[in-house]
Amino acid sequence: MDIAGRVAIVTGGASGLGRATVEHFVSAGAKVAIFDLNEAAGHAMVVELGADRCAFYAVDVASEESVATAIDEVVASWGALHIACNYAGIAIGSKTLGKQGPHLLGDFKKVLDINLVGTFNVCRLAAEQMAKNSPINDDGGRGVIINTASVAAYEGQIGQVAYSASKGGVVGMTLPMARELAAYGIRVNTIVPGLIHTPLFEGLGEEVYRSLEATVVYPQRLGKTAEIAKLAAYLVDNDYMNGECVRMDGAIRMQPR
């Protein structure tokens, strides 16, 4: 599917991986709706990228009403929805049992509610709109969904039990969702990032930052958000990519700590 002329939504689009993808898609000729809770950053991006190509919606991905309302507004404004990229997510560091006692159940549920349930919530409602599109290529394609997991889905570290469970769920639903949506001409793939240089890393000391880089096989550095955005664009562009979870991690394999 050609990105140019298409309509996309990007959750978590006001920072990090989402922001890089919004910028890439806009530069490629798409109209992009940013779904995020950071209103200041989202509105600033619209000013920067242009209101003719970019719009911001304050969206809680775990809320059915919030997502449904925003998607309806996107379609009302731009006429269709072709691409949905899910980056919104959180992480809470806590062990199943630690010095402070057992993992707080509320924290565990919160991580799954945003990372897994929120992702599915956007997928199902976006797919409903994509299915209404007329086919846009010879394969009968109507839409593309790109979710985001993490290498923690496969090699979760100590303290990542909730995060790993949520991202493992995203990996697990990729193939069945692709199979279910095939009848509508909607492809589903998942990006599985390793250590990507997002704002989360800015507060780390030089020693910690360098030690993280040293765990990557090659190239021995943190990944760039623009590299994730390029992968997202590739997954949109290549019509034979479907039902795949694509690691982008410099060949890293996470250790227990």
Results as ranks from 00 to 15, higher is better:
F201Q: 10
S63N: 09
G172C: 04
A44F: 08
V170Y: 05
G93L: 13
I90H: 04
Y163C: 09
A40V: 14
G143I: 05
S27G: 04
A33K: 07
G168K: 06
E23V: 14
V192C: 15
A183M: 07
N38T: 03
A232R: 02
T148K: 12
E213L: 08
Q255C: 12
V46N: 03
H197W: 01
Y234E: 04
T21Q: 10
M177V: 00
G250R: 07
P102G: 06
C54Q: 10
T190I: 07
A41Q: 08
G169T: 07
S150K: 04
G101H: 07
M130Q: 04
D2P: 02
W78E: 09
A229D: 07
P176E: 11
V236M: 04
A126P: 00
A76D: 13
G194R: 06
A127S: 11
V111Y: 02
K167H: 11
V161D: 03
E65T: 10
G12T: 05
G172N: 04
A84F: 00
V170D: 07
I196N: 01
V171N: 14
A55G: 05
L37N: 06
G79C: 13
G29L: 05
L212P: 00
A182M: 11
I83L: 15
L175Y: 07
R247P: 01
Y87A: 12
V171F: 14
A70Q: 05
L235A: 11
W78V: 10
V75S: 13
H197T: 00
G250P: 00
G89M: 12
A30I: 08
S164I: 08
V75R: 10
Y57K: 06
K109Y: 06
T119C: 13
I71H: 08
R179A: 12
R253Q: 13
A214Y: 02
E48K: 09
L125M: 14
L235R: 02
N147I: 08
N137P: 00
G172R: 01
V74L: 13
V7A: 12
L235N: 02
G42L: 11
N38A: 15
Y154E: 13
L104Q: 08
S77F: 01
I158P: 00
I196R: 02
A178I: 03
G159H: 04
D2C: 09
G140Y: 09
V10F: 05
D237Q: 14
C123Y: 08
F201L: 13
I114G: 02
A183L: 08
V192G: 06
G194W: 02
R253H: 10
L235D: 03
G12S: 14
A126F: 00
P199L: 13
P219M: 12
G106C: 00
I3N: 03
E180H: 09
E227P: 03
